[in-house]
Design a protein around this nucleic acid. Structure first.
Lengths: 198, 198
DNA sequence: GGTTTTTCTTGACAAGTGTCAAGAACGGGC
DNA sequence: GCCCGTTCTTGACACTTGTCAAGAAAAACC
């Protein structure tokens, strides 16, 4: 008996993951039911169980799928910047742009990361992704240090925590107050990044 | 007809708020049902509707009640430190201690803050509390600057975002890996706080 | 002790949920 | 066109949920 085509099976799982991410970004984890997710897809709720063991497996698959989308977010900034000022400006602009363009995706990331403190099944995947996000931010800081001919003053983990904290505050403010707050994020990054090298 | 005793009414609301916070810290927002909350109290689920309009009002009351508990967390550190090094050590120790002693409370704070991006009804209260947490952190940074006879290098908002990001990373790591990670938080604070003044 | 008021319990209701499985619909092979 | 396998729809099931209200229990008043 012929095995099912891998391509189609994975493609369908990816489609369901995209529907899940859409729903999580709109409603949050607490209200992202399988019927809501199915409602954001061309399928019915039963198809989720055809492709995934259960809801948790869908969510874990979705956030791993999400990872592949975003851990290279700032790599162009790192590659294309030829001076420290250029890198700061490009990085600040990119941070604001990604909040502006993909706010729901960022909200769902923080939501799921928070849920991982309550839901053992999410923790391994979230911890792994957080590690790749830390690495992503570290590539920015490290390159900035290189361009400044200086050394980073903090660890990768601390750099990620600090910049992620600024980003999260900007996202919260953006949710509450809208786009004007993003200028402040850019200003903060211009102040903070130089503090991270010496 | 005599009005109900205000003291008792408010006391009961506070008791229910404590049960709500206990449940939120244990299960997270998504699974904190009124029946679970009641199960963490001496009452039945019906009593919630006797004292609160609905579930959302209970949650908002609970986080405002929570605010009163924690926005003075570091004031003793600020008051009692006579040198920069003393303040840094006391602050680092207090951060680790509060994660060790009250991890569920911190988890629920981040959970509700995240939910406020999805739930309009939570946003005003969360934004207000975040503002008082920012002020709390600023008192630490400002005092540290004073002791160093220097000036802060960042805004209150940036200082809060950065230190809160470190704290949140420590909380996540503590949830996943346990207490040994708190030493790293202390080390990070020793590195980072000096960067915030000049 | 009786009455009134306050406080709380209990359970119903409607709606929603995740999971499962029967079987319909579709596609491929012959 | 038929048969078989794959894919998907549909709806049932058991359970949970927030809210509401009847009425029990407790407390206060006289």
């Amino acid at each position: 008996m012929k095995a099912r085509p891998v391509d189609k099976f994975d493609r369908r799982r990816d489609e369901l993951a995209e529907s899940a991410l859409l729903t999580l970004g709109e409603l949050g984890y607490a209200r992202a039911s399988l019927r809501e997710i199915a409602g954001n897809s061309p399928f019915s709720h039963g198809v989720v169980h055809y492709y995934f063991q259960d809801k948790l497996e869908l969510f874990i698959y979705s956030i791993r799928y999400y990872k592949a989308r975003c851990v290279t977010r700032y790599d162009a900034v790192v590659r294309d910047s030829a001076s420290p000022d250029e890198l700061i400006e490009a990085f600040a602009a990119k941070l604001a742009q990604t909040i502006r363009d993909e706010a729901p995706m960022h909200r769902l990331w923080y939501d799921l990361r928070t849920q991982s403190m309550f839901e053992d099944g999410l923790r391994e995947a979230i911890t792994e992704i957080d590690g790749t996000l830390e690495a992503m931010i570290w590539r920015v800081v490290d390159r900035y240090a290189e361009l400044r001919e200086a050394q980073p003053t903090v660890s990768p983990k601390a750099a990620y925590g600090m910049l992620d904290g600024l980003f999260q505050q900007a996202l919260l403010a953006h949710t509450a107050l809208g786009e004007p707050v993003l200028d402040q994020l850019a200003a903060e990054v211009r102040t903070v990044l130089p503090l991270l090298v010496r």
